[in-house]
């Protein structure tokens, strides 16, 4: 299931363990899997300058085992696009607003899971992004991602706008993008299959503000 970890609960044992486990899965993913040597650390955890108390984590875990996750940071704070990639944003300026948060470190663990299971986890993490966005009344989510990720998002019917052209890095290219947050986006992310994964949001209430019910109460102590 999905858990939300932020400044309010990250020091509680349960959530702290999940967060630590997700740093290790990120290490497997980015340093071992994709060879991002700049992120290598002797303690085999992957953390960068944006893993601060300003970050909110969406973590998919099964009995304490982290399988997927995402990191969200308010764009009013230093974030990847503003600090590391401002030069790839050429169609507009870098979005900076309390109602726009940046998505980074979206991952699904490689080993030990069937591709169907991994797809399901990725789908649920994606749904949780929009549920969180609606819950926080965000206008949008900004992201710097691998360009090959884009067709998948568009294929799902999710609206994603480029903020510049793809820019080569290492082997592939990356691109800065912006996804509006609204009920239609959540509906597309759910693809008619998923129920609520984090916040109970009814996508049939088109045009009206959806009602929010916290599903995972213990998250918000």
């Amino acid at each position: 299931m999905l858990h939300l970890i932020d400044a309010n609960n990250r020091n509680q044992l349960f959530f702290n363990r999940l967060l630590e486990a997700s740093y290790r899965v990120r290490y497997d993913q980015y340093v071992k899997g994709r060879g991002w040597k700049a992120l290598d650390r002797p303690d085999q955890r992957e953390l960068d300058q944006f893993d601060t108390s300003a970050a909110t984590y969406l973590v998919w875990a099964d009995a304490g085992e982290v399988v997927g996750g995402a990191r969200l940071i308010p764009t009013t704070k230093p974030h990847l696009m503003s600090e590391v990639f401002p030069h790839i944003v050429t169609f507009a300026s870098v979005p900076k607003s309390p109602r726009v948060w940046e998505l980074t470190r979206l991952f699904t663990a490689r080993g030990g899971h069937s591709s169907a299971n991994r797809r399901n986890v990725t789908g649920e993490v994606f749904c949780s992004l929009f549920e969180f966005g609606l819950f926080k009344k965000l206008e949008g989510i900004s992201v710097v991602c691998d360009t090959f990720f884009l067709p998948r998002v568009l294929d799902a019917g999710i609206e994603i706008k480029p903020l510049g052209i793809p820019t080569p890095y290492d082997e592939g290219t990356c691109i800065a993008c912006y996804m509006p947050v609204n009920v239609q986006q959540l509906r597309a992310a759910r693809g008619g299959v998923h129920d609520s994964v984090l916040f109970d949001i009814d996508t049939s209430t088109e045009g009206r503000q959806p009602a929010y019910v916290r599903q995972d109460e213990h998250v918000f102590h």
């Binding site: 360009t147 884009l150 067709p151 568009l154 480029p162 052209i165 793809p166 290219t173 691109i175």
Partner: peptide, 10 residues
Amino acid sequence: LLLMSIYAYG
């Protein structure tokens, strides 16, 4: 061309 192709595909 990559960017235009991705959006044309979408």
